[in-house]
Amino acid sequence: MGESRGSPSAGPQYPPGGTAPAAGSDPESLLAALGQSWMWLLGSALATLVPGIIVLVWPDETLHVLAVVIGLYLLVTGVFRFVSAFAREGHGERLPALLTAVLFVVAGVLCLRNPLQTIAALSLIVGMVWLVTGMLTAYTAIAARDLPHRGFLFLAAALAVVAGIVVLVLPAQSAVALTRLLGLWLVLLGVVELGVAFAWRAALRRASGRPRSRSSAPAA
């Protein structure tokens, strides 16, 4: 999950609510404004939290249903991360975020393309996604030293790495066990991402009265 080194301390380009630029702006600027909105980060967090709650509430569903839910989670999250990548200040800084978005989308397609795949295959897909994105998030937190509330980003990175390792090293032997394992980690990751979103909202509000310049939003 790539991150720019920009900070909202200089002030956002638009009000803290995340209002997009006026019509007529180029698509890249529109995507950048949308990705910088704390509401967009909130939507990304909910895209992780809601599937986690679903699979925990209905743990007895079949592997087919689990694969579809996880596949949709990966696709939707990939879209959120793709847009958030354009909030980076420099094109070079967008690369990790774009790679993460592509990884989520590809993994989601793999889950939906063959929802009757084995438990081991589903565990491998999700475990690799979480492990790689967790490492990219850790890199982001280290590189963006002036980013507000970096602790949330470090926590999200640690959870993703641990979740990936657990799923890869301890593959579930049944659909029910895998459902509970994935659901638990999705809920934990979603809660942390909610913290990132609200921390970014607080940073935007603090910067709203200052001279406006481009800033970059985190991507948990």
Rank of each mutant, 00 (worst) to 15 (best):
M1R: 11
G2H: 06
E3V: 01
S4L: 04
R5D: 09
R5Q: 10
R5K: 12
G6T: 05
S7I: 05
P8G: 05
A10I: 11
P15G: 11
P16R: 05
G18K: 06
P21Y: 07
A22N: 08
G24C: 01
G24H: 00
P27C: 07
S29G: 14
L30C: 03
S37M: 02
W40L: 00
L42Q: 06
S44L: 08
A45T: 01
A45S: 12
A47F: 02
L49S: 10
G52I: 04
L56N: 12
V57Y: 11
W58G: 00
P59T: 11
P59F: 09
V65G: 06
V68K: 13
V69C: 08
V69F: 06
L72F: 12
L75Q: 12
G78R: 05
F80Y: 11
F80T: 05
R81L: 03
R81W: 01
R81C: 01
F82G: 06
A85C: 02
F86M: 09
A87G: 10
E89V: 03
H91K: 13
H91Y: 08
E93Y: 01
E93D: 14
R94G: 14
A97V: 01
L98C: 04
L98H: 08
T100V: 06
A101G: 11
A101Q: 08
L103P: 10
L103Q: 13
V105G: 05
G108T: 09
L112S: 08
L112I: 06
R113D: 13
P115A: 02
L116P: 02
T118S: 15
L122M: 03
S123K: 00
V126W: 11
T133L: 08
M135W: 13
L136H: 07
A141R: 09
R145G: 12
L147N: 05
L147D: 05
G151N: 15
L153N: 14
F154T: 04
F154R: 09
A157D: 13
A157T: 13
A160I: 04
V161N: 01
V162E: 13
L168S: 15
P171G: 06
Q173K: 12
A175W: 02
L178N: 09
R180H: 09
L181N: 14
L181C: 12
L181F: 07
L188E: 12
G190W: 04
E193F: 00
E193C: 09
A197L: 02
A197H: 03
A199I: 01
A203H: 03
A203G: 05
A203T: 03
R210P: 06
R212N: 13
S215R: 02
S216W: 03
A217P: 07
P218Q: 00
A220W: 09
